[in-house]
Computed example of a mutant assay.
Amino acid sequence: MAHFAGKLAAETDASDVHADQENGVLFVLVDSRGRSAWDQGRIAGAVHMPTAEIAARAPREIPRNVPVVTYCWGPGCNGSTRAALEFAKLGYEVKEMLGGFEYWAREGYPVETDRGRIVRAKDPLTAPLDAITCDC
């Protein structure tokens, strides 16, 4: 029980992050990828803070009493884990978003580029096509 409760305290997913955004929950969503990845597309409303810059920038830019959620490319990348560790070292309440940018986009949530917002069709392998949530 402690193992699973610990995971839920340190992890979230695209669906929960999107719901929190829609419901006005206060947190900062941090994209820890590099510039070329950010330019390719990012989660609407995210802050770009590559992992190597967190120690220097976070204390100046993100209040310590505001929770942070980190993300990177996707499940094949541990960049969000590294970023979450950097925030934890600084004393932030932090969660890692499972699935990263990949699953955010595949689940049909808004993606931003310098040209504007894009909403892709839901991938039926990651989200139900006829429901708002997977009810899990």
Score class of each variant (00 low, 15 high):
Val28Cys: 04
Leu29Ser: 03
Leu29Arg: 02
Val30Trp: 03
Val30Tyr: 08
Val30Ile: 08
Val30Asp: 05
Ser32Ala: 11
Gly34Ser: 08
Arg35Trp: 08
Arg35Ser: 13
Ser36Gln: 11
Ala37Glu: 15
Ala37His: 14
Ala37Asp: 15
Trp38Ile: 01
Trp38Phe: 13
Trp38Gly: 00
Asp39Glu: 14
Asp39Asn: 10
Gln40Thr: 14
Gln40His: 12
Gln40Ile: 05
Gly41Cys: 05
Gly41Tyr: 00
Gly41Leu: 06
Arg42Ala: 04
Arg42Gly: 06
Arg42Met: 09
Arg42Ser: 07
Ile43Ser: 03
Ile43Asp: 04
Ala44Asn: 14
Ala44Thr: 15
Ala44Pro: 03
Ala44Glu: 15
Gly45Met: 11
Ala46Thr: 04
Val47Thr: 05
His48Gly: 10
Met49His: 09
Pro50Arg: 05
Thr51Ile: 01
Ala52Phe: 07
Ala52Arg: 03
Ile54Asn: 05
Ala55Thr: 14
Ala56Ser: 13
Arg57Thr: 09
Ala58Tyr: 06
Ala58Ile: 03
Arg60Ile: 07
Glu61His: 06
Ile62His: 08
Arg64Pro: 00
Arg64His: 14
Arg64Val: 00
Asn65Val: 01
Asn65Asp: 14
Val66Tyr: 05
Val66Gln: 07
Val66Arg: 10
Pro67Gln: 01
Val68Ala: 02
Val68Gly: 02
Val69Ile: 10
Thr70Tyr: 00
Thr70Lys: 00
Tyr71Glu: 00
Tyr71Asp: 01
Cys72Lys: 04
Trp73Asn: 08
Trp73Asp: 11
Trp73Cys: 05
Gly74Thr: 12
Gly76Val: 03
Gly76Cys: 02
Gly76Thr: 01
Cys77Pro: 04
Cys77Thr: 03
Ser80Phe: 04
Ser80Arg: 10
Ser80Leu: 07
Thr81Tyr: 02
Thr81Val: 09
Arg82Glu: 12
Ala83Glu: 01
Ala83Gln: 01
Ala83Phe: 02
Ala84Met: 06
Leu85Asp: 12
Leu85Tyr: 12
Leu85Asn: 13
Leu85Cys: 09
Leu85Met: 13
Glu86Lys: 10
Phe87Gln: 02
Ala88Val: 12
Ala88Ser: 14
Ala88Thr: 13
Lys89Val: 10
Leu90Pro: 12
Leu90Val: 08
Gly91Met: 09
Gly91Ala: 02
Tyr92Asp: 04
Glu93Cys: 12
Glu93Asn: 12
Glu96Val: 11
Glu96Lys: 09
Glu96Thr: 11
Glu96Leu: 02
Glu96Tyr: 06
Leu98Met: 15
Leu98Trp: 07
Leu98Val: 15
Gly99Asp: 10
Gly100Tyr: 05
Gly100Thr: 04
Gly100Trp: 01
Glu102Leu: 13
Glu102Asn: 15
Tyr103Gln: 12
Tyr103Cys: 11
Ala105Trp: 02
Arg106Val: 11
Glu107Tyr: 04
Glu107Gln: 15
Glu107Val: 07
Glu107Met: 15
Gly108Leu: 09
Pro110Asn: 07
Pro110His: 06
Pro110Val: 06
Val111Ile: 15
Val111Ala: 08
Glu112Leu: 07
Glu112Asp: 14
Glu112Ala: 11
Thr113Gly: 04
Asp114Trp: 07
Arg115Pro: 04
Arg117Cys: 13
Arg117Ile: 10
Ile118Pro: 03
Ile118Met: 10
Ile118Lys: 07
Ile118Leu: 12
Val119Asp: 13
Arg120Leu: 15
Arg120Ile: 11
Arg120Gln: 13
Ala121Gly: 09
Ala121His: 06
Ala121Cys: 01
